[in-house]
Design a protein around this nucleic acid. Sequence first.
DNA 1: AGCCATGCATGTTTATGCACGTTGTTATTC
DNA 2: GAATAACAACGTGCATAAACATGCATGGCT
Lengths: 258, 258
Amino acid sequence: MSEQIPMARRDVIADRLAQGQAVVAATLAAEFDVSEDAIRRDLRALATEGRCRRVYGGALPITPGLSPMAARIGEGRERKRALARAAATTIKPAEFIFLDNGSTNLALTEFLPEEAELTVATNSIDIAAAVLRRKDLRLIMIGGAVNPVVGGCVDAGAVLAITQLNIDRCFLGACAVSPKGGVSAFDLSDAAFKRTLLSVSRESVVLATTDKLDTRAPHRVAANKDIACLVVEHDAPAAQLKAFAKAGASILKAEPPR
Amino acid sequence: MSEQIPMARRDVIADRLAQGQAVVAATLAAEFDVSEDAIRRDLRALATEGRCRRVYGGALPITPGLSPMAARIGEGRERKRALARAAATTIKPAEFIFLDNGSTNLALTEFLPEEAELTVATNSIDIAAAVLRRKDLRLIMIGGAVNPVVGGCVDAGAVLAITQLNIDRCFLGACAVSPKGGVSAFDLSDAAFKRTLLSVSRESVVLATTDKLDTRAPHRVAANKDIACLVVEHDAPAAQLKAFAKAGASILKAEPPR
DNA sequence: AGCCATGCATGTTTATGCACGTTGTTATTC
DNA sequence: GAATAACAACGTGCATAAACATGCATGGCT
């Protein structure tokens, strides 16, 4: 009754992953009535496109929280908003701030104070689009080749461009945060960009949801001592925070989401 | 009653795709009682027009859900889409194209051919956001201070950035077009940017709605002879077009919007 | 005549399933 | 708690069939 188009199946799987669903190879095989091999091929293709994480038995959505457009993941959204609201309180009037890639920073645009005469720089297309709608903010876009996974510019040109800036406060899109290893990222270029960003910023703020605390990624970005302020959720385990406080970071706890 | 004139079939298929339906080649062949080859030819034509995505087994609508920019184009939407659809046909495979600021160029992103291996550069935030959702396109963002009126980067930094590029085809957001005065713009920096853009592009395409023909703006951008192709609406007065044709521009008329 | 949509024949590409050997996970045993 | 057995999931190579692009011939139409 229903005809099947191969690529359509792959799109359906991609959609589910983008919505934050995990998928099981065997289940998909039965559902679409193809062999598990075909499903595995799909998942492999999606994984190399960076659209999911391959695991034994199936695939998971792009790690806890890092996805380009799927920032609207139900519950995660409210948590991120609470985090963003808290982070926005660290901003002082007339500052020059930088918003790095990441869905949490996208949420932050909503809470930027209205009459603070802020100038905002970013390398993220989505964040730029959000800031552009705010007529009270000045916006500087960092250009370059756009990394489709990250959704922003992290190439050599982008790195060069931010070295021209004097940033008061940067908000680091945290891919992974560990008490021992500091901040790390999944993409090589992204990590290099973040390192340079830190070097041209007077203060740095890191927003970390609880599920990102005590996680690591391949590429090191910053040590604990480089973090001026760590914003965490209300339920962040105190044990994790000590190492950061010891290194000199101020810890800011967000209000619990309603 | 059941007699079909050939082109009607292609329109029916296009309609279904526009409604968000996926189509299967074999099913269509049976339904219209033609060979699958004929159907494939249709789908190929529609795909190069940017009206669907070609996949193994059939074709999928260009975006299964909705195009967020479509709403923002607002007034004149259908006219701009017709214009954009026509302009997209000038694009050749593997080209490096530049989309200048402007709502018409935003509409153009919807019709960029799917399988053409294009690289797209732009200085517009909204266009970048639209192109970013197309996973088949490579995207280069031109950065700089964002002009809130224009919605893109047109400052000295942006001008400097595009001098690094070798563009095959640029689509100029036409603010005003006159048979005598050529293309002109309302913003000083924007005009300067467009001039530089022209100088680094092999060919230039200008999209002009009928109401923009024979209008002028303060800052000159280009003379008629600098325009390789002028895309106009079906109801463009022929008198206006002669001057451009004489200067060497090819004139492309869009189909009337249904 | 020319034009154009179509159908058919050709060779090519793509997706799939199966067989094979390998790797990762779990259970069991000492 | 470490070693090992048992099993499921995995990746790869290969064969097959479907879908594909292209060239050419046909027939209707202006």
